[in-house]
Design a binder for these strands. Structure first.
Length: 540
RNA sequence: GGCCCGUUCGUCUAGGGGUCAGGACACGUCCCUUUCACGGAUGAAACACGGGUUCGAUUCCCGUACGGGCUACCA
């Protein structure tokens, strides 16, 4: 209205100066109101502390993180510990440590500093009566009800339905009529049951035959008939909310703009829509995004920690109920950057051929529009390749530093320069830092045996005198460096004829392959090479 | 079983009404290297099937098959 007035006035006045000013003002106003309408991006990762956080969970956390960073929003860690029976000691700490290692740190929530919406643990929020309040509201409006059925009664109901060839027995608009709840029991009986502290749950009253539609950011429109949705328990008999109630209450109270979670939640999303609706919050509810699952490489189904022949946890996880710990990606030698990179490309891609991304790059280009609908099988081989790419980005000094602990473990003491030189030579052959030892241990210790294949193929009666001459030639080398070794070798060849380099390699290192031979001989040192040659000649 | 979601090389994927269906991992061959690796080149390898719509479908629609998820007072 105000704008119209301005425009009208504009028509009357002809001053260009005024015109320009008013347009600028209009533009500013529009921008301002748009910004006000646009909800600040606030996303959450909301695991339950029922075990170690596995790679699928980390991926969910990652996508949340990336989306938040992309839009300059908030990333929250909320702990959904509403199931006391499944609570696992140490799981929460593990989740926090894992996120830290990956570098995808929430800026609000458990373990990362409380924000304005504290507490961020659902068990603590329950103590505050937050969930009860919403449950009461639903009961008051007739969208939820008390149910007093015991476990046995529920069992009996299901058995009965199964016997009657009902394929999916559920507590719903039909069956609730035959159960003991506040919809079937007389009002005074309900009151006395409540007064006498009889155990009860609060259930959502799902309508009989209603189309529920919602628009998923990744999947588009999804339609489900409410007949498929059961009367979900909202409040358990111990007073704890279920996931269904708790996450909705918290998402609303924490002003979450987008609920990004795994595909396993898709079937219960219609029930969630109903809860938002009955709470009168359908317009304020977060946008939904259901991520595709990460699947097992061989066989089918979700990745399982038991069968996997590759790590499934970011960090080593010791389940208090089990004896042996699970090796994590960290312990397996993965760089966190590589691990995150691998995860990012499982179910998402940038639309071009780039595959190596830093977290920062990812947070600039990540987009739900390029997230797939279908699950992705995890390929452990490609994971190794990713790590190799990151390993190659390391400087020789960095590689040396990360390899030194292994040497120390083996009781080997070498100076920094030596280790750097070693890493420089061997790094082309490794995917992990721990590969350095397997690929190059002969640099540090004399061989105990010689590659049988090479020996049987190439060692003959001429070999001994030939290599004795090579040995003598090497003895005469003054300054033991690559150039002089090469020169000595060539001189020996002109005197004695062709010398098999692989055989020479085997005599010194025991193995058939390795880095540049002369570089390696130089590194190993003159005394050591000579003594190894002597020892080989005496043994063969 | 029911409901929901999905389906491009073995795997991760690009693409999209007319393409030699592109890249990466893994695999093969060759080059480089007096070894191995790295690197380079190159090869083999895919639109699940059947119906529509269309001049034309891998692309859009519908079925079927297959795969996955869910089907708790678990998340």
């Amino acid at each position: 209205m105000v704008f119209l007035f301005f425009i009208l006035k504009l028509k009357l006045e002809t001053s260009d100066f005024l015109k320009a000013n008013i347009f600028a003002l209009l533009k500013q106003q529009k921008k301002l109101s748009l910004n006000l309408m646009e909800k600040r991006v606030r996303v959450r990762f909301a695991p339950s502390p029922t075990g170690g956080l596995h790679m699928g969970g980390v991926r969910t956390a990652l996508f949340n993180y990336l989306f938040a960073k992309k839009h300059g929003g908030d990333f929250i860690l909320r702990i959904e510990d509403t199931d006391q029976s499944r609570f696992v000691k140490g799981a929460e700490e593990y989740i926090i440590e894992a996120l830290k290692w990956c570098g995808i740190e929430p800026n609000e929530g458990v373990g990362f500093g409380d924000g304005p919406h504290k507490p961020y643990r659902q068990s603590e929020r329950k103590e505050l009566g937050i969930y009860q309040k919403y449950a009461d509201k639903l009961i008051a409006s007739g969208h939820a009800y008390y149910a007093f059925d015991t476990e046995e009664e529920l069992d009996a109901m299901r058995k009965k339905l199964e016997a009657a060839k009902v394929v999916a027995p559920q507590y719903n608009a039909i069956t609730r009529q035959n159960m003991r709840n506040s919809l079937t029991l007389p009002e005074d009986e309900v009151k006395s049951l409540l007064d006498s502290k009889t155990k009860y749950v609060v259930r959502l009253k799902v309508p009989r035959n209603e189309e529920i539609r919602f628009n998923d950011i990744i999947r588009g429109w999804v339609t489900v008939n409410s007949t498929q949705v059961d009367d979900k328990v909202l409040l358990k008999s111990d007073g704890m909310p279920t996931y269904h109630l708790a996450h909705i209450v918290d998402d609303i109270e924490m002003e979450i703009s987008h609920a990004v979670r795994g595909e396993e939640w898709l079937p219960s999303a219609p029930a969630h829509i109903l809860i938002y609706r009955y709470l009168g919050l359908e317009n304020e509810m977060p946008k939904l995004a259901h991520l595709p699952l990460i699947l097992n490489p061989d066989g089918n189904g979700k990745i399982s920690k038991r069968e996997a022949r590759f790590p499934v946890f970011p960090l080593s996880w010791q389940d208090p109920r089990e004896s042996a710990p699970y090796v994590g990606y960290k312990e397996a030698g993965y760089y966190p950057e590589a691990f995150v990179n691998i995860l990012a490309l499982l179910g998402w891609n940038p639309g071009n051929n780039q595959e190596i991304f830093s977290l920062k790059e990812l947070s600039e280009i990540f987009d739900f529009e390029r997230v797939h609908k279908s699950g992705a099988k995890f390929d452990p081989e490609k994971a190794k390749w990713f790590n190799q790419q990151y390993l190659r980005k390391q400087s020789d000094q960095e590689l040396a530093d990360s390899f030194k602990p292994t040497l120390k473990e083996k009781g080997i003491d070498r100076d920094n320069e030596f280790v750097i030189e070693f890493c420089k030579l061997v790094k082309e052959k490794v995917q992990f830092v721990h590969d350095f030892w397997e690929q190059g241990k002969y640099v540090f210790e004399a061989p105990k045996e010689y590659d049988a294949k090479v020996i049987s193929k190439k060692w003959n009666e001429n070999s001994k005198p030939l290599f004795s001459s090579v040995l003598n030639k090497f003895k005469s080398v003054g300054n033991w460096n690559v150039e002089n070794i090469t020169k000595a070798f060539h001189e020996a060849e002109t005197e004695l004829g062709k010398i098999d380099m692989q055989l020479l390699r085997v005599l010194v290192t025991g193995v058939a392959g390795g880095p540049q031979l002369f570089d390696m001989l130089a590194l190993i040192s003159k005394e050591e090479v000579l003594s190894r040659l002597e020892s080989a000649l005496s043994k063969l």
